[in-house]
């Protein structure tokens, strides 16, 4: 237990440093934009300008600006938007993030559950028909970028066949296509990974031993093999979260879902720097937290974990 605590504290420390790096990066972004990033001629007025200068303390030297910037982020104050008058970044986040979160959670749940199931089935039918079919589909799933998949889905299922609505986020029927477009890639990745680790685990001596005990195939797969086979899947969850998050930028744009991703892409196109910075910091904090949780879960799942070394598979 003491080792677990030490491990957790170490991951926590790395997490804080990472967060600091990203905050500093956004600050460097702000001061490295030629001229003032907030000198905007359009859709802006005197008050906005004054608000911005006050928020970022532009009259102060850089190091004071930097410290005050960190302070404002630590208090969850991301400042005003340039392009959307009378809106703060916080307003946008509180409006957009719940929707993006909903989309993301449904996607992850679908991807993880179906990905693992497909992976197990393929491994148990190794070199069989089902194995080839599912893995063929999985390779395709990885190969098609989600914005192309989304467009094809809209074209076929929404416009041609009119089974699902084309856009927006209102009812479960509206959710089908965006979730499908977003989940296919991660699902395919999880399925392939589960399959390959499962195949490797199934050749291990302890599986032979379990067979020699006369256990049923069901117990061998779910009690002995799966837990070990899922370790690598847990380790890539952080990357998958990140992938799904950036995926929402695209999917929300295509399906006109009023989520945070859409605001983010708009802010990039309009060079709305406070929104870009605030959202980046917020997203990063979210992802880094997810990565931290994944690490802790991994530590719980694998009793062998070497606390002084991430992953611990080398032992």
């Amino acid at each position: 237990m003491k080792r677990m605590l030490k491990y957790t504290l170490k991951r926590l420390f790395i997490m804080v440093v990472t967060l600091w790096v990203i905050i500093t990066l956004t600050f460097l972004l702000m001061i490295s934009i030629p001229g003032s990033p907030f000198n905007t001629d359009q859709a802006s007025n005197e008050t906005v300008q004054a608000n911005l200068e006050a928020h970022y303390n532009l009259d102060q030297p850089y190091y004071i600006q930097y410290l005050l910037y960190i302070k404002s982020i630590a208090t969850f104050d991301f400042g005003p938007s340039i392009k959307q008058p009378n809106q703060t970044v916080n307003d946008l986040l509180s409006r957009g993030f719940p929707i993006s979160f909903e989309l993301g959670i449904i996607t992850i749940a679908l991807a993880v559950v179906s990905g693992i199931l497909v992976g197990i089935i393929a491994a148990l039918r190794h070199n069989g028909f089902l194995d080839y079919v599912t893995m063929g589909i999985a390779v395709l799933g990885i190969s098609i970028p989600n914005f192309i998949l989304a467009t094809i889905l809209i074209q076929q299922l929404a416009v041609n066949l009119e089974i699902f609505p084309t856009a927006t986020w209102r009812s479960p029927a509206h959710m089908v296509l965006p979730v499908l477009a977003l989940a296919t890639g991660p699902m395919a990745i999880i399925a392939r990974l589960t399959r390959s680790t499962m195949l490797e685990v199934l050749t291990q001596d302890y599986i032979k031993m379990a067979k020699a005990k006369g256990l049923s195939p069901w117990k061998i797969v779910f009690k002995h093999a799966l837990r070990n086979a899922l370790m690598p899947v847990v380790t890539i969850m952080g990357t998958l979260f990140a992938g799904i998050l950036t995926g929402t930028f695209v999917i929300e744009q295509i399906f006109a879902i009023p989520g945070m991703g859409r605001y983010f892409v708009e802010s990039i196109n309009q060079r709305d720097y406070p929104v870009i910075m605030g959202t980046t910091v917020f997203y990063s904090a979210f992802l880094i937290m997810m990565l931290f949780i994944v690490d802790i879960v991994y530590g719980i799942l694998d009793p062998r974990i070497k606390m002084h070394q991430k992953g611990g598979k080398s032992g």
Binding site: Q204, D205, Y206, K208, A210, H224, P303, R304
Partner: peptide, 16 residues
């Protein structure tokens, strides 16, 4: 009939 395997380091499931 029971069986004992060669390598005790790998014959036991590390997670149980």
């Amino acid at each position: 009939i029971s069986m004992i395997f060669q390598d005790p380091m790998t014959a036991l499931n590390p997670t149980l």
